[in-house]
Structures are given as structure tokens and as C-alpha cells.
Design a protein around this nucleic acid. Structure first.
Lengths: 184, 184
DNA sequence: ATAAAAAAATACTATCCGGTATAAAATGCC
DNA sequence: GGCATTTTATACCGGATAGTATTTTTTTAT
């Protein structure tokens, strides 16, 4: 099994089960020896870091895709809601949210990456609201930075809810309700 | 150190650091031998269960106190917000929220208690909204059960935010914003 | 084909975990 | 005081953890 496959096994394991999955277990599932993993990633911190970077690249790509689409402001929000609450890929939650919750158990490089990704995501949301305000699509009076923090928190909440087994049919209305306030 | 003190040490440890704190560490901090702990609580599941029950009794007592007070509907909501976001006792988050997030690592009895407490809390919130509707203090059109789920989720979110180090001054406006929708 | 280099598998270290058996100390009882 | 009981402390068990040293296999180069 190639190194890229190993990384994908790690991403799936951390994504579905959280960062407390052992490197032993990941080696076993990937059919890769421990020395190979350590040569490739340096250690547990390197592996969790690589998995987080891979996941974040994927997710932020999808996010940019939605936010730079031709959809209206409200349409983009709705697409975000649908992706978070209904996409089968998010059935077990969000790798980033799980790592952030267990931040103190992570290595220093992975911890730093968590902070960096969080700031980057909020920045993306902030631009979304600034643009919406500029285009007149977002009539709200609250600050774009605050709205971005709120949106980020609510999406993380929905991811946590899916991670603890809440049905998509339960999560989606709650998220829609929480974000409905952003339209007014 | 007496058994009650041991329980309070366990509550504080699980509350501030999460349920992955080892029984070894709790014994050491409490100055109690492992056999004593096992005689008193039977095992890790018994200890986490006792800590969760103690914590839940405390919190649900405070909750009932607020919700059965003479405050108005909006005043009760505001008191709930202030307690969740600002009380220094919640500086490290909420024991229940942490145990719920790590549910799969807990013993069967503690897991069952988590489910039970969740249902009980949502029930308390549901009564709060039903009464508010009946008294004409809550003009909203959404179902009390849905509002209860929403309130429960938002309070848990705020607790998680405090647990990962967010300032009370950041958490409170976000929670106020999320719950402002319940007034309309 | 053979020698050199790289990769991999196995086995190991030291440490921690939850849980317990055993031995030592302290207590109660008469 | 001396015996019995209970509580304590220490040491241990089996298993899992992150990480590594060693040996075996495979590949590569000449």
C-alpha cells in the first residue's frame, strides 16, 4: 500500500473515530509497517498534521467552490447548510471539529495547524459576508466578522451533532433555524 | 480524604479535563489508594457515573431554580445565557457536554446516564417553552419541543466554546445572538 | 550473478492503562 | 492487653500505547 493510501486511511480513521485512534491501528488497517509510517511522517504529530492538512484542503476547496459559485447569497447559505447537514460524507462529523475538541492531546505542529485552519475558515466566511453586504444581498446590520464567527460556530455545532449520531433530518432544521437569523 | 472528597476531586477532574482522565491520576490527586476507590465505586464506570450524577444534580438544580423563579420569560432566558457564558464555574466548559462528546469511551452505565440526562434536560426546556406559550410570554410560532432542542444545542455549543478557551466576552454575544431568534 | 542499498517485518523498550492480589498497618472489640 | 476485622499501601497482572533497534527481505546497480 502506497503512502498516499496510508494517508487516506489515516484521514478516514481520524475523521470517523477521532484523533485518539492509535498509530498501531492505522498501520494495521493500512497494511503498512510502523517503521514505514515513521519514515514517511516522522511520528504521530506528523501523521495527524498530514491528515488534517489533507482534510482541510478538501473541505476548504468545496467551501470555496460554493462561495464562489453563481448562487445568490441566500442560495450559498442554503448550499452550505445542505452540505453540512445532509452530505453522506459528513455522516460521522468533521475531522477538524474533532481535532479541535481534543486539541490538548495533539502534537504541537497539529495544534498550530488547527489554529491556522480556524482563522483561515473564519476569514473566508468574513469575505463572504463582506461581499454580500457590498452587493446588497445581505441586508443585516451586524458586523461581517461577527456573522462569520457565528456561521463557523453553527456549522461546527451541526458537525458535532452528526458525529454523536443525530439524524440529518434532525440536524438540518436546527441549523436552518440558527442561520435563518442571518437573512434578516 | 473521605469518599465525598474523592467524588468532588473526580467531578473537578472530569469537568475541567474531560473523561479521559485516568483513575490513577484521580487517586493520586485525592490522596486515596486505588483499592479504596474500587471498593467505593466499583470501577471506572462507577466513578464516572457517580461524578456525572453529582454534576447533573447540581446543574439541574440551578436550572430549575432559574426556570421556576419570578423572572419573566425573557428574563429567564437572559439568566440562562449569563450563567452559561459568564459564570466562572463554567470556565472550563461542562462535564456533561464533554462526556457526551466522548460517549463511546465511557462505560455502559455512564453512557445510559448521559442519554437519560439529555432527555431530562430537553424535557425541562420543553416545559419552559410550553409554559411560556401558555402564559402568552412567548409569541413564537415554533413547537416547544423544537425550541427546547435548539436551546439545548446552543447552550451546549457555548459550553464547548468555553471549554476550548474562548473568552466569556466572545461566547456571550454569540449565544445571545443565537437565542435572540427565540424571542420573535 | 553478485554486491550494495533500500525497504520492510519482527521484536523490542519504557510507560501507561484499568483492575486486583497480597501484605502491612490501623482500628474496633472484649 | 491481645485478638479479630477492616482499611490501607504496595506490588503486581495483562494489555495497549508511542517509538525504535535489529534483522530479514526485496530491490537496484553494476
Amino acid at each position: 500500500m502506497s503512502p498516499e493510501d496510508l494517508l487516506q486511511v489515516a484521514v478516514a480513521a481520524y475523521w470517523h473515530e477521532g484523533p485518539e485512534v492509535s498509530v498501531n491501528a492505522i498501520c494495521q488497517r493500512a497494511g503498512v509497517s510502523k517503521p514505514s509510517l515513521y519514515r514517511e511522517f516522522g511520528g504521530e504529530d506528523g501523521l495527524t498534521l498530514a491528515a488534517l492538512e489533507s482534510y482541510a484542503g478538501m473541505i476548504q476547496g468545496q467551501l470555496q467552490e460554493v462561495l464562489s459559485s453563481k448562487l445568490s447569497f441566500a442560495g450559498k447559505l442554503e448550499a452550505l447548510i445542505a452540505f453540512t447537514a445532509e452530505d453522506p460524507r459528513n455522516e460521522h462529523g468533521c475531522l477538524f471539529v474533532k481535532m479541535r475538541a481534543a486539541r490538548q492531546d495533539l502534537g504541537p505542529r497539529t495544534q498550530a495547524k488547527v489554529t491556522e485552519i480556524e482563522a483561515g475558515t473564519v476569514e473566508i466566511y468574513t469575505r463572504f459576508f463582506r461581499d454580500g453586504r457590498k452587493n446588497g444581498e445581505w441586508p443585516g446590520s451586524i458586523a461581517p466578522g461577527f456573522a462569520a464567527q457565528y456561521l463557523h460556530a453553527q456549522i461546527g455545532l451541526a458537525a458535532s451533532q452528526r458525529a454523536i449520531g443525530m439524524e440529518a433530518a434532525t440536524v438540518k432544521p436546527l441549523l436552518q433555524y440558527a442561520l435563518s437569523i442571518l437573512k434578516s
